[in-house]
Simulated assay, not measured.
Amino acid sequence: MIILRTYLEFVVSRLFGTGVDTFVLWICSHYLFEGYWGVYIVSPVISFEFAVMSNFICSYCWIWKNRISGRCMRDFWIRFFVFNLSSIVAFLVKMLFLLIFEKMFGWGVIWCNFAALLISGLLNYFLADTVVFRKCFVSTKREA
């Protein structure tokens, strides 16, 4: 039951992250950047990082808060760095499966994206649960 609750919290936080991503992308692409590179490359990278940060904060302060025994800036930033890497891996996996589904089934990009998100979302959850937010990820005690 606890795994289901944690997974549902994970899904809710990722939906919030999607909203953050979309909002920041809109701001960047309409008001901050111009041209192809600004709109289609720089803006999505910035919005992706904002979404990653919002997802991480939800995970750190809400979903897996009980697994973090020694809260400190070092722990926060090390976990964020690993979380960011795992998010990038999950994004690349999503893109790979999106392209595979398009080639195999000929689906439109939206359906391919939904199917790929199911796979990459499970990978993202697994990485967060077993790597980023495992109980003893970062030792906050100094050895004598």
Rank of each mutant, 00 (worst) to 15 (best):
Ala51Gln: 07
Glu143Met: 15
Ser54Asn: 09
Cys112Ala: 10
Phe16Glu: 11
Trp64Thr: 04
His30Asn: 14
Val82Lys: 03
Leu85Asn: 04
Gly106Ala: 06
Lys135Val: 09
Phe23Ala: 10
Ile27Asp: 02
Val82Ser: 07
Ile119Gln: 08
Thr140Lys: 09
Ile78Leu: 12
Gly38Lys: 06
Met53His: 13
Leu25Gln: 05
Trp26Arg: 13
Arg134Gln: 13
Asn113His: 08
Arg134Tyr: 14
Phe33Ser: 05
Phe56Glu: 00
Gly19Ser: 03
Phe23His: 11
Thr140Gly: 11
Leu92Lys: 04
Glu102Gly: 15
Tyr60Lys: 00
Leu4Asn: 15
Thr6Glu: 09
Arg74Gln: 09
Ile119Cys: 10
Arg5Lys: 14
Ile68Ala: 05
Tyr7Glu: 09
Cys112His: 08
Leu122His: 10
Phe101Thr: 06
Ser139Pro: 06
Tyr125Gly: 02
Ile100Glu: 04
Glu49Trp: 09
Ile119Trp: 01
Leu99Cys: 12
Tyr7Trp: 14
Cys61Gly: 14
Met53Asp: 07
Phe16Asn: 10
Glu143Ile: 15
Asn55Phe: 09
Asn113Ser: 11
Ala116Asn: 03
Tyr7Ala: 12
Phe33His: 01
Ile41Glu: 08
Tyr125Trp: 02
Ser59Asp: 04
Val12Leu: 08
Met73Ala: 09
Phe23Glu: 09
Leu98Cys: 08
Asn84Asp: 08
Leu118Asp: 13
Glu143Lys: 15
Phe97Leu: 02
Ser13Thr: 12
Phe97Lys: 04
Trp64Asp: 03
Arg14Tyr: 13
Trp64Ser: 01
Ala116Ser: 13
Leu99Met: 11
Val93Gln: 10
Arg67Leu: 02
Leu85Trp: 05
Ala51Trp: 04
Tyr40Ser: 11
Arg71Lys: 07
Phe101Tyr: 08
Leu25Phe: 03
Arg5Asp: 15
Arg71Gln: 00
Ile68Phe: 08
Thr6Gln: 10
Met73Asn: 01
Asn124Lys: 05
Leu85Ala: 00
Cys58Met: 11
Trp77Val: 04
Asp75Ala: 10
Asn66His: 13
Ile110Gly: 14
Lys65His: 12
Phe137Asp: 02
Phe101Met: 05
Val20Ile: 07
Val39Gly: 08
Ile88Ala: 11
Val20Lys: 01
Val132Glu: 03
Glu49Leu: 14
Met95Lys: 01
Ile100Tyr: 09
Ala116Glu: 04
Asp21Glu: 15
Tyr40His: 14
Lys135Asn: 12
Phe81Cys: 11
Lys94Trp: 08
Leu92Ala: 13
Cys136His: 15
Ser87Lys: 04
Leu25Asp: 01
Trp62Asp: 10
Ala51Val: 07
Val109Phe: 15
Ile41Pro: 01
Arg71Asn: 01
Val138Arg: 02
Gly19Ala: 04
His30Arg: 14
Gly19Thr: 10
Ser54Asp: 11
Thr140Ala: 12
Thr18Val: 03
Ile88Met: 08
Arg67Ser: 07
Ser47Gln: 02
Leu25Tyr: 02
Met95Phe: 07
Val24Cys: 10
Cys136Val: 15
Thr140Gln: 08
Ala90Leu: 02
Ile27Arg: 03
Ile27His: 07
Val93Leu: 14
Val39Ser: 08
Phe114Ala: 15
Gly35Asp: 04
Asn66Val: 12
Ser29Tyr: 06
Ser29Pro: 07
Leu32Arg: 10
